[in-house]
Design a protein around this nucleic acid. Structure first.
Lengths: 340, 340
DNA sequence: GTTAGCACTCTTCACTTCCGAGTGCTAAAT
DNA sequence: ATTTAGCACTCGGAAGTGAAGAGTGCTAAC
């Protein structure tokens, strides 16, 4: 168990290190306002803290640096809610007041605000389709052999894809098909589309001509086969300003990871409700071993819709970042709620 | 004027430096197969070349390195067409054989192939709208106060935007409006849309009710007011592998530039037909002073549609890159031509 | 339990020294 | 008149040295 004084010392060390990125010595601590012990006493406490694994030395006679266990303890027990400045609150409020009405835009602006305010890299996993329903399907032919299929959801999301069709297929067949699809599928939640398509609709289509079936295949492939994730990343370069990323190799591996959107998306998707902090080695991805990833989710009703995350060095301003994520995720939740 | 031997020496120096990124000494040159002179002779030639500004020393007793003037001369007079390997040709052919039918996809894959093959960063300015014409406008209401407007071009490009409308506006008004817009605007080249909207259509709309005019305003704002550029960047991290980018500051300034898509787009847009090479200081952007930017354009008929570019260090494989860009731009041109 | 004092450790920086790669010049060779 | 061999010279980089400074751990005194 940690004594009160040890808690205090640990807190000071971590707070200080987060700001300066420099190892903290006993003398520096003893000089702090809320500390009334001599450096020697601090040294003893620090020796204990080190033995328990909360802090480390960078070399035998250096000041101390928080260990990952230290950060973990700090995050779990030591941080108090951060009072955001009115400037910060304003930036966020401003983002939501532009009266944008599209998922994409709101989410994108959120990512930008977040990375601007923190100087870390923000990653937002766009709204998943849980609650969204099909609003309308349209096919617009461009030429005798090409057409573009458009799918609109009740959330205003639009997917589209161009495709080729054999010239043998009649435009009237396409129209008929669209009608059938709209008849049967409008209002159906997006996640159930696949299922419905393969049972109900496929059956129905079978009863028509060969050509009609072909048309169906094309449209299905165009609209429903690929489901791509939307990942918004803000301030990729911010992380370059952190002194821990002086090494080009680290930068490279981190940037390479960030290009693998699928993996990142899966990682974020797996995060549960509320704020979640992964520190250093706790991260599943190798290239993030020197980073911390803080995630928060936003939701519609009791369905989780997406995830906001901030990626920075383990030496992160946890307190502030967590407050920011809290505010932003609840703003997102509120906004989406007001829409539907 | 440069003697034949000087040309040869200059060529060897640049070829070698492009491969090794190390200063080249006289002895190394004299050992090359096609060189039959002693290192002393080479030294004399190098002294001349340096005096003329084609090569430089990194310090008083170092080997030589190409100057920007040297690269310029190399690009203008010394490079012979590069024979692309069949592997390279295959990768490109493969990209165009996937039967994708959308601008975006083709262009995106092209960017990827290009950066993969070269290990530089590829930037592609998406097809401009010169020849594209409006195919259809649609408005789909999502709720009593929200709707999504969709605009489709004859090239299969889809733009969409959600927007709010006062509840006082009748759905029937919206329908009427869409009909008018489609009546008047289908087939009109996208670049003329603005003009038409502000003259013809505005006039027409004036004769209807107040509400109708309001609806018009909303739709116009949603669909036509913002025109955003599509810029595809491939292999941003590739540039980190180049030894000239060991310095974090350089990386940061370069990446910061690359986030300013507007500026990059303007830069690319200003490039004229054919291959264009900007070496080092020739670049307008400060952060690119250590880079070379090679651009090629692709077109439809005699209208230039967009630009492909590769960004790398000044020590670039000019010959290969130029060949690749040539092939790719003509493939793009051919593909687009076959569509329309 | 706390603190002052001190020896000890380790980094950092400036300053050498040494080596090798490469040049420029001169004089000899072709 | 070129070309080449030879050699002194220059410079960067690696390795080494020493002094300064920051910080620790331990001991003994408070």
């Amino acid at each position: 168990m940690l004594s009160n004084r040890q808690l205090l010392v640990l807190q000071v060390i971590i707070d200080e290190f987060i700001q300066t990125a420099q190892p903290i010595g006993s003398r520096a601590i003893s000089k702090k306002e809320d500390i009334s012990f001599s450096s020697a006493t601090i040294r003893n406490e620090m020796a204990d803290l080190e033995e328990m694994g909360y802090i480390e030395k960078t070399h035998s006679s250096s000041g101390r640096v928080p260990s990952e266990k230290g950060y973990r303890f700090y995050v779990d027990h030591l941080i108090s809610p951060f009072r955001l400045s009115s400037d910060e609150m304003n930036s966020i409020t401003h983002t939501f007041e532009k009266g944008m009405l599209e998922f994409e835009q709101i989410v994108q602006s959120s990512a930008r605000v977040l990375s601007d305010l923190t100087n870390y890299t923000s990653i937002i996993l766009g709204p998943e389709v849980f609650e969204t329903k099909l609003k309308q399907i349209q096919i617009i032919s461009l030429s005798s052999t090409t057409a573009v299929a458009i799918l609109v959801t009740n959330t205003g999301h639009v997917e589209h894809r161009s495709f080729t069709i054999p010239a043998t297929i009649q435009p009237s067949d396409l129209d008929k098909l669209v009608n059938i699809l709209n008849d049967r599928l409008v209002g159906v939640p997006i996640i159930q589309l696949h299922e419905k398509l393969y049972t109900e609709i496929a059956e129905l289509v079978n009863s028509y001509t060969q050509d009609f079936e072909t048309a169906y295949k094309y449209v299905k492939a165009a609209l429903f086969d690929e489901q791509h994730v939307k990942l918004y990343v803000g301030g990729k370069t911010n992380i370059l300003m952190q002194p821990e990323f002086k090494d080009v190799e680290k930068i490279r591996s981190l940037f390479t990871i960030m290009e693998k959107e699928d993996e990142i998306a899966n990682l974020l998707r797996s995060s549960t409700g509320g704020i979640n902090v992964s520190i250093g080695q706790e991260n599943k991805m190798d290239a993030m071993q020197d980073c911390s990833l803080i995630t928060a989710t936003y939701s519609l009703g009791d369905k989780q819709m997406g995830t906001i995350a901030l990626l920075g060095p383990t030496r992160m301003e946890y307190s502030r970042v967590i407050s920011l994520l809290n505010v932003l995720s609840s703003r997102l939740t509120k906004t989406f709620h007001s829409w539907y």
